[in-house]
Write a protein that binds this DNA or RNA. Structure first.
Lengths: 249, 249
DNA sequence: CGCATCTTTGAACTGGTTCAAGATCCGTGG
DNA sequence: CCACGGATCTTGAACCAGTTCAAAGATGCG
């Protein structure tokens, strides 16, 4: 575990009450009573791009809420390469496993300069016990983690490379949906299970076709419609109707 | 949701107390007091191969513990094909999302004749509230689900087809490790993200090389050592040391 | 026994990898 | 401020694993 100089923090969770992203994050819908239960420090953490939040196997005593930036969770493979298992975007929770295990499962690393809150396990455990609201939150967060990993598998590790790249661009695009910051080619490779060269070629192709337009450095404008087509017809069709293996109870 | 005639059940959870797999399953380490809290029926469910337990989107009012058999959780893709997201083996928990969502996320289907316990959400919610033991169990189960999905991604959807097939054989092998029941080629395809033909060819190759020996129908003896080699050198090396993107806090 | 389903195998094709050479970008220090 | 050096990105060409299409065996079920 390592990160740059934690800021001095207030002695309790006063800040959390005021936090701008609270309504979306783990501590959403807590009441004043809930906050009163806690007097342990919640630290702020700042990571710059490429810095690790923790490594697989590190002692797990805290969990984290991402306020700004982008974090990748990876497994390292036997051959030394890495496979991205999930991306966490702002408001996401990182390191939930701290609640049930004493070491982290993944390697967590910032892909952009990031800002997080570090919440001691003890805080969450106490709230979990005493606040039904947080308890529900917790289960929900866990559910999210599973769903996101599933989605990662079906969206980013399935189908031809071109589709995957298209899906990744869309996934990384901002709220408006027409702009995104692409990571380095190597990271793209680790996310999609393809080589850096393939990633490069496909992005070059998308640029030629006008589906991506470079703004600066790694900033791109994107033609959402076109990319959605490539990504596989209908946007989120994977909830559609099973066709075979039908019921025969 | 659909499955064959639920057996008549005892009026409460008496059976759970006596259950042979209890020590591993969700209700492990519950006390008599815990059981006393519940008077809702826990049904037994029997699925035969290819029968669905539930479909994505079905109303989720129960979760399940698998006692015998093998269940696959899948997402259906836009093109109608399916992608297996995780396999559940005996003692595993299925449908946890019922606790936080009112519909199931996956399609769950038996790959072998299976035997499950169907536990109403209300039961688990009550125990969750009133038994710290079950509460901890629940978080742990959820953690397991995430880890299993992660593993599925890194083991079954990464690397060349030959490696994947080898890993799948090992994954499906019984305790002794030298015997396994292989699913149909189409299922293998959906699990590994390859075509049925490729699956078939590779299995044929493994048989030629003596890594797999057919016993009957879909029963195979396997040469664990050889398969482990193919699966990618060291067995579970993916916890190994990160090499680049080192700390620079 | 005969039909439907699943598996195996073959042969052509292709998407993606590999290896290798340039190009481009960027921080650093002169 | 520019030039250098390392890293990253792009592009090319040969190669190969895996796909695709097609057709011939198995296998099981009514």
């Amino acid at each position: 575990m390592n990160y740059s100089a934690p800021q001095p923090t207030l002695p309790d969770m006063t800040r959390c009450r005021l936090c701008s992203i609270r309504q979306f994050a783990l501590f959403n819908n807590l009441t004043e009573d809930d906050f009163a239960l806690v007097h342990l420090p919640v630290e702020e953490i700042f990571l710059s791009k490429r810095q690790a939040l923790y490594n697989a196997g590190d002692d797990a005593n805290s969990l984290f809420t991402l306020r700004r930036g982008l974090i990748k969770l990876t497994h390292y493979l036997a051959d030394g390469s890495q496979r991205v298992v999930r991306l966490v975007r702002p408001d996401g929770t990182i390191g939930l496993e701290a609640l049930v295990s004493n070491s982290y499962t993944h390697h967590a690393e910032a892909m952009q300069d990031s800002e997080l809150c570090k919440i001691p396990v003890a805080v969450v455990e106490k709230l979990d016990r005493e606040s039904p609201r947080l308890h529900k939150q917790l289960l929900t967060r866990w559910h999210q983690a599973v769903m996101e990993t599933d989605t990662w598998l079906t969206q980013m590790s399935t189908g031809p490379a071109r589709e995957r790249v298209a899906r990744l661009c869309l996934f990384l695009s901002d709220e408006n949906g027409n702009h995104c910051i692409l990571p380095g080619r190597e990271d793209i490779g680790a996310m999609l299970g393809i080589t850096t060269e393939t990633a490069s070629r496909i992005i070059a192709e998308f640029r030629r076709l006008g589906h991506l337009t470079l703004r600066n450095r790694r900033d791109f404008d994107l033609d959402t419609k076109a990319l959605q087509m490539i990504a596989g017809l209908t946007p989120d069709t994977f909830l559609s109707i099973p066709h075979k293996s039908l019921d025969r109870a």
